[in-house]
Design a binder for these strands. Structure first.
Lengths: 216, 216
DNA sequence: ACCTGAACACCGTTCAAGT
DNA sequence: ACCTGAACACCGTTCAAGT
């Protein structure tokens, strides 16, 4: 990521503007003109770098999730627990990619997991392992937060299962063609609701707005 | 339906035109001008009867799906709101089936929606409409509960999107050949958490004696 | 190669004006 | 009350023209 050392190229300016607008309001429209104006760039230039609005949104989404968060973000007490859990869930979602990439990932999963009928014991075991690995990771995050007292008492296994289901639902929506338009806003609010369901409503007040740190 | 006959009012002409266009091509755009032209009516007249395009589409789809889905469970005030919303979400999930049946349903969806690359505009639009229909149904349930005062103020569109994502995630897990033993239990707790996230902690259980400040 | 900004073809909504 | 159609403020995309 380029720090503010030298002048940004138009492409970066556009991306930064879009990220800033998204950070300020995840439900903002991110129209060509709005983003171009914010970036101090012409619509034609925006179009040159992003042949379509969908391409811009896709790139932005990728950039946001591309922060390959190391697994120990969860222990960073400088960040509010809510933001930490959100970041971890985003990291879980990141490898899916967006658009065609997400569809490709989904296709592979489909061919391997749901297509074979009847499912072999091998597939069954592999899938079970995948699920267990996910549960382990999410379970660990929850345990860390619980030790801080940031998590109200409750069934953490159920919570982990719940969060994994939400991430699974979102990852499928990544692969669904039409959902790409307002995917950014919807993912943000949905993950927020899911995290609030786990952390309780008290955690929501710590941070305003649904957007986390989207650094230009 | 009827090519011509008794003089229809403008409202009916508009609705008939929209229905015809939708019947001919479910992916058609149904724009103000297109529908108005097809109905032989001015855009102003269309606007008079349908204050917004969303209203027109909503009326049309309500007319189409009304006799198909009577879903009136949500209005049964004898049942606690939480149970009603849960029942509705289960009804949404039901057609997916379980096991091999769920995999079959998922395979069809996959072949039609995520397999074609690049996705056609037709698929894109049809999928968008499907999602919108789901949002509408869930949105209606939330509206009913809101009118009863069982729903804290908030973004109901975001909540509907969230619930649909959860149901989507669960429906996929239905198709995943894993330990189907605790599927029912996991589904139950996950749906419960999702519903609690929407209805607020008040609806969950009366055991919460701690500081549960519901913001005004 | 990169960028500009006008132009095009849409969209939904508003509204003074008619009947 | 119902209807008209122009006008407005958007939208995404295209493109001749500049540097």
């Amino acid at each position: 990521m380029a720090q503010s050392g030298e002048p940004l190229g138009s492409r970066e300016k556009v991306l930064a503007a879009a990220a800033a607008m998204y950070a300020e309001d995840p439900t903002a429209s991110l129209s060509v003109r709005a983003v171009a104006a914010r970036a101090g760039v012409s619509t034609g230039s925006l179009r040159f770098h992003f042949p379509t609005q969908a391409a811009l949104r896709e790139t932005l989404l990728a950039a946001i999730y591309d922060h390959a968060f190391p697994d120990d973000v969860i222990t960073d007490v400088a960040v509010p627990p809510r933001e930490r859990l959100l970041a971890c869930l985003r990291a879980l979602l990141a490898p899916v990619g967006t658009g065609a990439q997400a569809r490709d990932a989904w296709r592979r999963l489909h061919d391997r997991v749901v297509a074979p009928e009847p499912p072999t014991a091998q597939v069954r075991a592999a899938v079970g392992e995948m699920g267990a690995e996910g549960s382990r990771r999410v379970g660990r995050w929850l345990r860390v937060l619980a030790e801080e007292g940031a998590l109200p008492p409750g069934d953490d296994a159920a919570r982990a299962s719940f969060l994994l289901t939400v991430v699974g639902g979102l990852s499928f929506e990544r692969a669904v063609p039409s959902a790409e338009d307002d995917l950014l806003a919807r993912e943000s609010t949905t993950l927020g609701l899911a995290v609030d369901a786990v952390l309780g409503p008290a955690a929501r007040d710590v941070t305003a707005g649904g957007a986390s740190d989207v650094r230009p």
